[in-house]
Design a protein around this nucleic acid. Structure first.
Lengths: 124, 124, 124, 124
DNA sequence: GTGGTCTAGACCACA
DNA sequence: GTGGTCTAGACCACC
């Protein structure tokens, strides 16, 4: 099994899931600067998807300066510039925005978080 | 200005934003059962979007039994079947899932929520 | 014939040529802000290439904020932020750098420019 | 430090940079016919790159008759067959072509050249 | 071995 | 109609 966990059912495209999870793995220190990402073909094989899909994700990561191409070697992680907190912002904002539209209080949202935390499969 | 607030920049499609926000307006009691939704034409005009897009959203809402078509009248809100809590589940799950991948603790997430709550434009 | 002119023999990938030329067309005012780019399928047909190649170019242009996606409509040109001069910088630098390595004088380079200008097919 | 100056960030492959710069060094008289090129091992060490990459560049240079292999000695420079002007052609053409697409005048291009010449780090 | 490019064709989502 | 995603497979460039 891979460090990546894809969710085919989710609406978000596969290549985007790879980009996001890679960012998160770097932000949380599970991928260190200088380390090599799994090769396109290997990751594609592991995840059972087309190499081009992985390649697209890697290209985006490179474009954003998250990783760098080393010709003939692979993709290496650049120095981490994102903190776990920043990495979580989009999801946080989405939740808060929706909660406000629902006229909920912060406390109600926090309750919902704790509930979801337990009900979901244990974390690693 | 409308009770709806669309975000063209966001990735979520317009029709989906209308569906979601309508559900949230009902769940939070800002739209009451029996009340009439704005007509397709009016809402499209207000939001500056294609009427077909509004129509698609309304069709979905009807399909889910959230509103009903009254010939010659428009769309009326059915009795609220969803609680605010349920309505918030997708966003909650997304947050928790991402946080676990980042190896954060529930407390850190709660902090992030409180922070985002304040930093965002004051709610009503 | 299209406003684009591809050079299959050149080493630069097709999608890159489309990106570059689009930037140049905008910089020179041949494509105006608000204007729609040719649709992926149309341009692909005109140039005799695969739609995905055009799509890749358009995606890059969007990522760089040069054009914006209008869902269901196409790609529209954003306000031009690049001047013709800036747009020419990479090529200018490459020339100057090489000329310095060859220990040529600026005058010799200017001569070469004038020569190449005439020998090439007349400009539009 | 070496007479070669590689740019890993640039898109052009390393072996190509070596080939090009060698040609330019010969064309400008900084490498004279009969002179020995640095050995593959030494150059690779100096530049901090893979010896295979240097070897590939040398093989190309030999194939083009620019240098010759002398068993037990190394690669010696042949009589210069290329003039500095010819050596500059690709970059010149690229500039002119782009400028025409931007509908600039030769004078504007010359201005850009002079500007870039000064703004760049002093040569030699 | 590494990643990059391109093709052909299918299917989806959006307006 | 628009663009987006994914697949399968070929070929190239680089180290």
């Amino acid at each position: 099994m891979s460090i990546y966990s894809l969710n085919a059912a989710s609406g978000t495209p596969i290549y985007r899931q790879i980009v996001d999870q890679t960012c998160q793995l770097i932000a949380s220190g599970q991928l260190l600067p200088g380390e090599l990402l799994p090769s396109v073909r290997v990751l594609a094989g592991d995840l059972g998807i087309n190499p081009m899909t992985v390649s697209k994700a890697y290209t985006l990561l490179e474009h954003d300066g998250i990783v760098a191409r080393r010709r003939g070697l692979g993709m290496v992680v650049q120095s981490a510039t994102i903190t776990p907190h920043e990495s979580l912002r989009p999801q946080t904002l989405a939740l808060v925005e929706a909660a406000k539209r629902l006229r909920l209080t912060p406390e109600e949202v926090v309750d919902a978080i704790h509930l979801a935390w337990k009900s979901e499969g244990k974390s690693t």
